[in-house]
Simulated scan of single mutants.
Amino acid sequence: MDNLERFELATTVSGKTFKFFNHPKANFLIDLPNKMILGITSSISCIDCYLPDENEIYHYAGDISFGNDNGINYLNFHSRSISALSFNNEKVQIPKSSNALCNVRIELQIDKSIKWFDSVREKF
C-alpha cells in the first residue's frame, strides 16, 4: 500500500474532514486558513502541528509543549522537520542533510514581559 492509499480521516472542530497519514492522538483538531492543522492534547500540555503533502494528506510535523522545571517556565519545540530558525527576523539555515537539530527549548521569564509592556505604556 503506498502513501496515496494509506490514510485515515479525522474531523476538526470546524466540522471539516481531512486525510491523515496516521490518526492524530489529540483531544481536538483546529484547521487554520494556512493549511496547517493544530492538535491539542491537554493532558500533556502539548500542541501538535500537521502539514499536508502534495496529495493533501496531513503528516505530523512537530509539537510544542509547555512546562515548568524547578520554577523555570519553558516552551519546548520538537520536530524532525526543522529547516531554519529565526532570531529577531535573522534566519539561521539548518543543513538539509541534517536532522540532528530536533529540540528547541525556550525558557520564559515573566519579568521581562512585564518590563517591556511597562516601557511601552510609558511612551503613550
Rank of each mutant, 00 (worst) to 15 (best):
Y74I: 02
T17K: 05
S65A: 11
F28P: 00
N68S: 07
F87S: 14
A84K: 04
R80L: 14
L38Y: 11
A84L: 09
G67Q: 01
C49R: 11
F87P: 07
F66M: 11
T41L: 10
K19N: 06
D63T: 13
S65Q: 13
L51H: 02
I30V: 15
Y50M: 07
S81P: 05
N27Q: 06
K25P: 10
M36I: 08
D53G: 02
K35I: 08
G71S: 06
Y74T: 04
N76F: 01
D63F: 05
H59P: 07
I72Y: 12
S42A: 14
I64P: 00
A84H: 12
Y60L: 14
I57D: 06
S43K: 08
S45Q: 10
F18D: 09
F87V: 13
E56T: 01
G67V: 09
I44H: 00
D69I: 11
G39E: 03
N22W: 06
A61E: 00
L29F: 02
I64D: 01
I64Y: 01
C49E: 08
I40Q: 00
L75E: 06
S79H: 06
H78E: 12
K35D: 15
P52E: 12
D31P: 04
G71R: 05
I37R: 01
L51E: 10
N22S: 15
G71C: 06
L38V: 02
K25S: 14
N22I: 14
F87Y: 15
G71V: 02
N70S: 14
P24E: 04
S43A: 07
F18M: 07
Y58A: 03
N22V: 13
L38E: 14
Y58V: 01
L38K: 08
Y58L: 04
G62E: 05
I44R: 01
F20Y: 08
I57T: 13
N73I: 07
A26K: 00
D63Q: 09
E54R: 04
S81E: 13
P33I: 04
I37K: 00
Y74S: 01
S65N: 11
T17Y: 03
I47S: 00
H23G: 03
S83D: 11
A61R: 09
N27K: 07
H78F: 07
H59L: 14
Y60A: 05
K19F: 02
I72D: 11
F28A: 01
K19A: 09
I82H: 10
D53W: 01
I44Y: 00
H23S: 15
Y50T: 08
K35Q: 15
E56R: 11
S43E: 13
F21N: 12
S65M: 13
N34Q: 04
S86R: 10
L75H: 13
G67K: 04
I57M: 02
I72R: 13
I30F: 13
L38T: 06
L51N: 05
I30D: 11
Y74D: 00
Y74H: 08
D53H: 00
Y50W: 06
I37Q: 01
P33R: 05
F21E: 13
K25W: 15
F21W: 05
M36Y: 02
G39F: 03
D63P: 03
I57Q: 10
K25G: 15
